[in-house]
Design a protein around this nucleic acid. Structure first.
Lengths: 209, 209
DNA sequence: CGATAACTTGAAGGCTATCAAATGTTGTGG
DNA sequence: CCACAACATTTGATAGCCTTCAAGTTATCG
């Protein structure tokens, strides 16, 4: 099990063992590095230690849908069946706690809760993508990300406009235009493209419906 | 437990007990009848015996997103947390096998598999809604439904065009136009609005990308 | 058989995509 | 440290797909 885990992390610079709540590995990933690919065997799951991860799927012609982002503390990598249907990659410099199959079997109760919240997230996201306009989607995204980062007013985006667009079913141009519009209304302010201050939280929330 | 289940089915005409793989109730629902509502306590889960069910969510202004349909043999009703975030209703005359909380606890292993496939379905659907055009969405929907009904060439739609539209993030008019277009290309043929013959399965599959 | 709902079809407009280019940022080698 | 290349983001103009609004046609049910 761990031998298998290690061979697949041969590109990782430093592989260290820790033992906070059971044995696992902590592996570093450079920005853009693939964590697993569609078709890969499912034999571990992951918890983000630092950084951020995107899980996505591709169409033959290159269209991409990001189904989830994962921030520090969040788990991912569990799917139905024995092989992955999605790709996962590190968005930024990232460290992941890696759990083996044995750990997943021992903690199937917690895994159930994770699967249920994963299902809830995806279904909530269906409403956003299926029935909300561009402004509503971006507003919902910013609020969601803000809450998952602790709820402060300053928001750090680990992902690019393209990643956001592929998550929201939009284009980078549209995402950028919406951000500009929200900035114009002073709902948000940008320190730089990846750092957003939420100036009017209530106004932002109102935009989600 | 069963007392609680029974009180909530007082509108059901006939409530019968059966004992195929554990104790449960089989309750009939008229077309359009609500099974549970957003906010309701989660204390049972359901398996479609006959008929069909839709699970959906509403925005304050009435926009609706159907997150899943459930056909005979399929289970639904399990969600994260203690209260429902979604509505469920019978689409047609429907009979449901109802399982209590105790059953859910005893079968948490199977529930995990169900939650994982539910998550997979929702995430797959995200790709369809987020990145595919109207024709691709309808084609994917027809193929999915066809496979879930056994894979024959004749397809019976239990749901209305509005239900389909709310599932695919479109309008009834667009769904209707796409169906007309597919009929014009002889990819499908309609016996009536709810009964579709798949004339060219490969062509239909090709339309999904 | 009439009334109501479901479905289809048509015309026009709006939102977002596409294409294009400017501006800003990041990383690297000299 | 600067220059430059590569990339990310923003902004603009135009086009297309789908929605909206409206009306006609078909099915369903009492």
């Amino acid at each position: 099990m761990y031998a298998a885990a290690q061979t697949s992390f041969q590109q990782a610079d430093h592989v260290e063992r820790t033992q906070i709540s059971g044995p696992y590995l902590v592996a570093p990933y450079n920005a853009g590095r693939e964590i697993y690919a569609e078709g890969d065997l499912i034999d571990k799951c992951y918890q983000v230690s630092t950084g951020a991860v995107s899980v996505y799927r591709l169409l033959p012609d290159g269209r991409r849908q990001v189904v989830s982002f994962h921030l520090p503390g969040e788990m991912f990598g569990f799917e139905a069946g024995s092989n992955h249907s999605f790709f996962a990659e590190a968005i930024t410099e990232t460290k992941l706690a890696v759990f083996g199959r044995r750990h997943m079997q021992e903690r199937s109760r917690e895994l159930l809760a994770l699967a249920l919240t994963g299902m809830a997230r995806a279904q909530q996201h269906l409403l956003v993508i299926g029935r909300q306009c561009a402004v509503e989607r971006v507003a919902a995204f910013l609020i969601d990300l803000c809450e998952r980062q602790g709820g402060g007013r300053r928001l750090r985006l680990p992902m690019s406009r393209q990643d956001i667009a592929d998550y929201l079913g939009l284009t980078t141009e549209t995402v950028s235009r919406v951000v500009t519009k929200l900035k114009g209304r002073s709902v948000i302010a940008l320190r730089d493209a990846r750092t957003i201050d939420i100036v009017k939280p209530d106004a932002l929330r109102a935009l989600c419906n």
